[in-house]
Design a protein around this nucleic acid. Structure first.
Length: 262
DNA sequence: ATGGTTGCTATGCAA
């Protein structure tokens, strides 16, 4: 059995319902994980998604902020959620496919502007969120699992447009990279995208504030696909749909894909 | 050091 999965920070699922449909029609992933839906679950426009064959939907939402959803052609069951760092935010949901694979969909806190928890509470919350992810994976020891989402950290030098310029910019500071690395290690998660594409710069996000995103290309790889070692060898075909950043009324993030042969 | 843009929702906050 083979299935293709995509992850996309959609930055309002209601505003961008047409773009979600465009992606589902053009690419037809078996599973699409969305973040920043910015919608209560009962206001997610599910009808069009269902018409396109995505009959199975698991979501967590809140008004205006955060929100995660998993749209699937394949049957899946809700596998719960966790409120890491007790923020009361809809930032995680899990679902289980019939083949026993668990999919974790994450939206890690962005962390505010200043990379200093003494003066910026949000940065501390981001680090705490990652620490609690680490502790949970350490106790849980995930198996046959895939973790995707907007992790709001670009860990490698070639995950950003200028490593040195970004060392003090939230999303690429050493302390964040270290926290993310500990969470990854605790679950023995394999970075599927980088296992597939080990060389070269990779970005999944370009700021709205950069006037000519394509020419300037000041991107970061904030969106990730991880898998546990028991299934990571089954992953291939990773790609990042850069062109989606140029679509009409785009999200600032683009979809990241991987295929699993299981 | 600062501002640049977008979305939600009605004013500033979060990203």
């Amino acid at each position: 059995m083979s299935f293709t999965l995509a992850t996309w920070n959609i930055n309002s699922v209601r505003l961008r319902e047409p773009l979600v449909c465009q992606l589902l029609e053009a690419e037809g992933p078996d599973v699409l994980c969305l973040q920043e839906c910015k919608s209560p679950v009962d206001k997610i426009p599910m009808e069009r998604f269902r018409e396109l064959g995505y009959q199975h939907i698991v979501a967590r939402g809140q008004k205006g902020y955060n929100g995660v959803a998993i749209l699937s052609k394949l049957p899946l069951e809700d596998a719960g959620d966790r409120d890491f760092a007790q923020l009361g935010h809809a930032r995680h949901v899990a679902a289980r496919l019939e083949n026993g694979v668990t999919i974790h969909n994450f939206y890690v806190p962005a962390g505010g502007d200043k990379p200093d928890r003494e003066i910026n509470e949000k940065f501390g919350q981001k680090l705490d969120y990652l620490t609690e992810m680490r502790d949970w994976f350490h106790s849980e020891r995930p198996e046959k699992a895939i973790l995707v989402g907007d992790l709001n950290i670009a860990p490698r030098e070639d995950d950003v447009w200028d490593h040195k310029k970004l060392l003090k910019i939230v999303s690429h500071t050493p302390v964040e990279v270290e926290h993310l690395g500990e969470a990854q290690e605790a679950g023995a998660w394999v970075d599927v995208t980088r296992a597939d594409i080990p060389e070269g710069n990779l970005y999944s996000w370009w700021s709205y504030r950069s006037p000519d995103w394509n020419a300037a290309d000041k991107g970061r790889r904030l969106d990730h696909v991880w898998a546990t070692p028991d299934i990571s060898n089954a992953a291939h075909g990773s790609r990042i749909l850069r062109e989606a950043r140029g679509w009409e009324k785009p999200s600032d993030h683009v979809p990241v894909f991987a295929t699993f042969d299981l």
